[in-house]
Amino acid sequence: MQQIPMTVHGAEKLRQELENLKSVVRPKIVADIATAREHGDLKENAEYHAAREQQGFCEGRIQDIEAKLSHLQIIDVTKIENKGKVIFGATVTLLNLDTEEEKTYRIVGDDESDIKLNLISVNSPIARGLIGKNLDDEVTVVTPGGDIDYEITAVEYL
């Protein structure tokens, strides 16, 4: 498995989720299964089957997170000298040259991306168009909705 890039914050959130699954969710599911077993015949016991299904999802997510954590490449941009270059973890402010609208995005790993929070995946069309570019560069980003011309007005390593 290849290295999975992630910010310090993203790795911490993943570790917290894993801890919650192991210390809160898993024990609750085990208790739910025990309670459902007490209700008798397991063939027609909906609570038992629902709890077993939840257990499968929980264990699958635990395995998924543990695999990701074992292949993490944590990138802390605050420890990198900012020379205005767009890199993984950078926060980039873009000026849409057609609409004059400004947008700010942070380029993060796949698991931590959330467009509502302006966290975009390093593999997204916008991030792929920005990586390696510099402050004040004009870039054309190819998106499913068409090409968009931007000027990079700020590059921050927060």
Rank of each mutant, 00 (worst) to 15 (best):
I107T: 02
R106C: 08
D114F: 03
I126W: 00
L117C: 05
S113G: 08
A90T: 08
L117F: 04
I115N: 08
D110A: 14
I120W: 01
V92M: 05
L130W: 09
T91E: 10
V92R: 00
I131R: 06
I126M: 07
Y105A: 08
R128Y: 06
Y105D: 08
A90L: 05
P125V: 07
T99G: 15
D111N: 13
S124D: 02
G109E: 03
R128W: 05
N123F: 04
S113P: 07
T104Q: 12
I87T: 13
G129P: 04
I107N: 01
A127S: 14
K103G: 08
T93S: 12
I107L: 05
K116L: 11
T93E: 11
E102V: 06
F88S: 06
P125F: 09
I107Q: 01
S121E: 01
L94G: 11
K103V: 12
A90N: 05
L119F: 14
T91D: 00
V86W: 04
K116N: 12
T104K: 08
D110H: 14
I107C: 00
I115Y: 09
E100K: 14
Y105G: 07
P125G: 10
V86N: 05
D110R: 14
L94Y: 11
A90I: 06
I87W: 09
V122Y: 00
V86P: 06
V122Q: 02
V108H: 00
D114T: 03
K103R: 10
N118S: 15
N96A: 10
L95Q: 15
K103D: 09
S121D: 00
E112V: 02
T93K: 14
L97N: 13
E112W: 00
K116P: 04
D114R: 02
D98N: 15
T93N: 06
R106A: 07
S113D: 10
S113C: 13
A90Q: 04
A90V: 07
T93H: 05
T91G: 00
N96E: 12
S121A: 02
T104R: 08
T91C: 02
I115H: 08
I131N: 05
S113A: 15
I87H: 08
Y105K: 08
I126A: 04
E100H: 13
P125W: 09
D114S: 05
N96P: 10
I107A: 01
N118H: 15
T104A: 09
G89N: 05
L119C: 07
L97F: 11
A90W: 02
V92G: 03
R128D: 06
I107S: 01
L94R: 10
N118K: 11
T99E: 15
N96H: 11
L94D: 11
L97G: 09
E100Y: 12
L119A: 07
N118W: 03
E101Q: 15
L94C: 13
R128L: 14
V86G: 06
D111G: 12
S113F: 12
S113Q: 15
I120G: 01
